[in-house]
Design a protein around this nucleic acid. Sequence first.
DNA 1: GAGCACTGC
Length: 702
Amino acid sequence: MSGHSGSSESRPKLKFLKPSDDDATWEQDKPDVDPINATTFVYNPYYSLSLDQQKKKLPIYQNRDHIIYLLEKYQTLVLVGETGSGKTTQVPQYLAEAGWASDGTMIGVTQPRRVAATSLASRVADEMGAILGDEVGYAIRFDEKFSPTRTKVKYLTEGLLIREMLGDPLLRQYSVIMLDEVHERTVNSDILMGLLRKILKKRKNLKLIISSATMDAEEIQRFFNLRDKKSSKSSSDDTSVILSVSGRSYPIEICYAVDPVPDYVKDAVKTVMKIHETEGKGDILVFLTGQEEVDNAITLLQQHTQNLSDTNKKAMELLPLPMYGSLPARDQLRVFQHTPKGARKVVVATNIAETSITISGIVYVIDCGFVKMRWFNPDTFTDSLVVVPISKASAEQRAGRGGRTAPGKVYRLYPEPEYEKLDPQSPPEIQRCDLSFAVLQLKVLGIDNIVRFNFPSPPPAQNLVSAVEVLFALGALDRSGGLTSPLGERMAEFPLPPCYSKMLLVSGDFGCSDEITTIAAMLQVENVFQLPFGQAAIRARIVKRKFEVEEGDLITLLNVYTSFVKSGRTKHFCSQNFLNFKRLKRADEMKKQMVKMLRRFEIPLESCKGNLEPIMKCIASGFFPNAVYLHHSGYYRTVRGDLVVYPHPTSVLYALPQPQYLLFSEIIHLSQIYIRDLTVVKPEWLEELAPHFYKKRTEHFH
DNA sequence: GAGCACTGC
């Protein structure tokens, strides 16, 4: 798929259809809604009815005894329920009270995100009248509060539970595992499902609860049904069962655009204004796909608000607020502030508001119907960010962001027939991402044949092959696909992508572990350079030059960190140099962790004291699969895949004379294929450090 | 001279 240039015209679009004749009668039934210029909505009164009918097929949740009864009878319970049903907070308490966490075992509840694990633990501890860390605890990376002897309910991140299997392969410290928010289908939740299926066969006394907000429960139930189909014909021998939990959310009215909308940013803004003029109290949440769209919508809304206050004195003020991941923390907090009396908040957000954050007081939701998604292409070894239609599950989730405190209303900027054509679920992440880290994790957990591993949704074979190839080139796997010792085993223990862990583990050999831990840490945090507007932007660029070196971006980052430490890690230094203090502090933390891990492998902290060559060779030992060479056409091409790529304009090497060979840390397919975080490399180093990978490829370069 | 959704170990 070709990239998009950022203008909405070139984006892939839903094929909107004109309403057919059949729909004409339906259209007449619509309540009297004035056309909002191009966008008109119809109310679909059948929505809630059809959802109820679906639910009738499933057993209905009654009380705690019902759950306990089912868990005694079945090994796996698939719990379907909307958010707000209290399953995440209540069910573990039921089980703890009923004595399921006895003999020093625990009930483990996984979450995809760190904040969820910690905040749920403290909430449940409150509800149980316990001290956090005693009966109820949590564990996330860098932070844990639980007692191995007294804790009965432990909330933890998915990734951490996988790591616990390294020391406790059958998870014997748990009597019940509850995987929560499984409908999000993160790589980790899919890996956990595959691994837990194996564990359940070996530990008949382990109970599993899979908790999901959507209706793909049957598929999961079948995956965990371990009944031997040959010896047992009766479904009464099933080992898994579905239970539906009713939610407590308010009804949500669904409106669809009658006609396809030509420009969903403009139409979202029009819809906001229409709601503001005709509808009652309540804040508005708008879903768009990216930062640029959000900023454009905010600008348009500000213009409209200006016009409003100029022409007619509106009783209610409109307060547009942007929300996306790279927004400074201070601005992000504004969306959580209480809406002033007599005002209406409009939060224009990316997908961050679909699951990661919850804003209270939202009544109206406007959904553009698209999402930006990362997609790994094993042919080119590139990641792309593509705008694709959302799934039905996403549409429901977005709609549900309103109606949490009062009846809600959602405006979908697409006709209803388009909704019907959406996929029920988005493809799980494991089917569309780089799997090299996941494969390494599975190998160290004893999964020798990755291709035959029972994934709930198998990833494309090519993605697995591509991951195995890179791991072999890095020396983590041997010819037969086994983990090498000690390099491969150690790499699997690092919570980092394989290129990074390889670089760190060989840094001792180059005598530069001090510098390499810094570089790895700086690459882990988000961009430390602040991007101010206007005059300040020019000053920021000049200041940045102090740190820049012709060896590339990684050494530049090293300079930034070294100066930061020399200054005494002060906020003042950061604001003077247009650097992000919080991110540098986080890099500092990460470096400490990496130094600690290296010490465990008896790799001492050493500095090569200003000699750059060992550092650059060490970088090359990890990142050689990401080499590009200068083609005679004047453009860079990748060694793997021979793709034409462009250094990103933020790179220090962008404006400098082009070196013959470069290494990149990141490649992304946008309007063009950009490579970022670059380091100059000598071709003879590549041949020396990775001859098997490199030699056969050098002939056709010149 | 670009501009990239979101997590996590």
